[in-house]
């Protein structure tokens, strides 16, 4: 499982031994055009949100009422010199209704959204794969684990969030400080409320796989269960896990904004992509850029992860690799 998790991130790959299986995987991965560009985009967006704020002169929370409601540069350029469109190179993507710079908000918002998205998604994936494989492979665990899945599917999300807030917000704040505490809370909340689909899908696949000949063969030569799972089952449920991963990332980024709305998430002046998107919806007609840019950021990140997942799965598949 840890192999699979690391592989999903895609960061460990270049450090793997230069020859042998991993070198092959890397070569195959690089040859996959979509995966390559997906990775490039992720590197870019990661740099944008981490290094960007260090370079960019504006503070995302600094108000400047005089330069409120600025339009992005392309609107200004397109409208021409003598129009009364309010824009400036100072704020290339424009400002919001309180004069906060949109570019700076996108950068800071991206930090949180990406961090929450990745961690929550990996947590959900880990739980989902673990429970799915265990339930599918070990008959005795199937009943209890799947009934637990039913229970989690049935729990109403909002009251659950409120209860978790009630129980854990103050202790977490006290232990980890305001921001880390909130982060942990959000990630855990999203993680434990979105693993069920992965678990059901993985279990379904495992149920079918474990009756296949190669598993029977492995078992008949006395391969221990742990080996069967890691060598034979996991690689074969990889594609389902990858799809869950990309959908899960999008889900986590959007869910974060809904949680902030309840007062469970980050403070109201702290931007995240999801929140930027939902806050700007009411001014969709007059300031489309305020929804387009965060929307593009979320979609393209998800798309990039999807392509990387595709490439990774192909690269890890021995039947394709080397072709």
């Amino acid at each position: 499982m840890t192999d699979a998790t690391n592989a999903t991130i895609g960061e460990k790959m270049p450090e793997a031994p230069a020859r042998g299986r991993w070198a092959d995987v890397w070569r195959q991965f690089r040859a996959h055009r979509g995966a390559f560009w997906g990775m490039m985009f992720l590197v870019f967006i990661t740099l944008f949100v981490t290094v960007g704020p260090l370079i960019w002169p504006h503070d995302p929370t600094a108000l400047d009422i005089r330069s409120k409601d600025m339009r992005p540069f392309y609107v200004g350029l397109f409208a021409g010199e003598d129009s009364n469109v309010k824009w400036s190179w100072e704020h290339p993507l424009g400002t919001d209704n309180l004069g906060r710079d949109l570019m700076a908000k996108l950068m800071l918002g991206g930090q949180v959204s990406l961090a929450v998205g990745w961690v929550a998604m990996l947590l959900a994936l880990f739980l989902g794969a673990l429970i799915g494989v265990s339930a599918g492979f070990f008959k005795s665990l199937d009943g209890p684990l799947m009934r637990m899945t039913d229970l989690f599917l049935a729990l109403p999300l909002l009251p659950l969030l409120l209860v978790m807030m009630l129980l854990f917000r103050e202790p977490l704040r006290a232990t980890f400080g305001s921001e880390t505490g909130t982060f942990i809370l959000i990630v855990v909340v999203i993680g434990i409320t979105s693993w069920m689909q992965t678990a059901r899908v993985v279990r379904g696949d495992v149920l079918a796989l474990k009756e296949r000949e190669f598993i029977l063969a492995a078992r008949s030569i006395g391969t221990p269960s742990s080996k069967i799972i890691s060598r034979h089952l996991l690689p074969n449920v990889m594609s389902a896990i990858m799809v869950s991963a990309t959908l899960g990332l999008a889900n986590a980024i959007i869910t974060e904004s809904a949680i902030s709305f309840l007062g469970l998430g980050f403070p109201p002046d702290f931007p995240t992509w999801g929140k930027l998107l939902s806050d700007a919806t009411s001014r969709l007609q007059r300031f489309p850029e305020r929804v387009i840019w965060p929307g593009v950021a979320i979609s393209f990140t998800v798309l990039a992860v999807n392509y990387m997942g595709d490439g990774l799965r192909d690269a890890l598949d021995p039947r394709i690799r080397g072709r």
């Binding site: 929370t61 600094a62 108000l63 009422i65 209704n97 309180l98 906060r100 409120l162 305001s178 709305f261 309840l262 007062g263 403070p267 109201p268 002046d269």
Partner: peptide, 26 residues
């Protein structure tokens, strides 16, 4: 929006503000 503005003004008089918003039904 009011929270953000007032936080900014209070910071100008040396008062630090932490913001929190809560669901109206709670």
């Amino acid at each position: 929006d009011f929270q953000a503005l007032i936080k900014e003004w209070w910071s100008q008089i040396g008062i630090e503000t932490e913001l929190r918003n809560l669901s109206a039904s709670v």
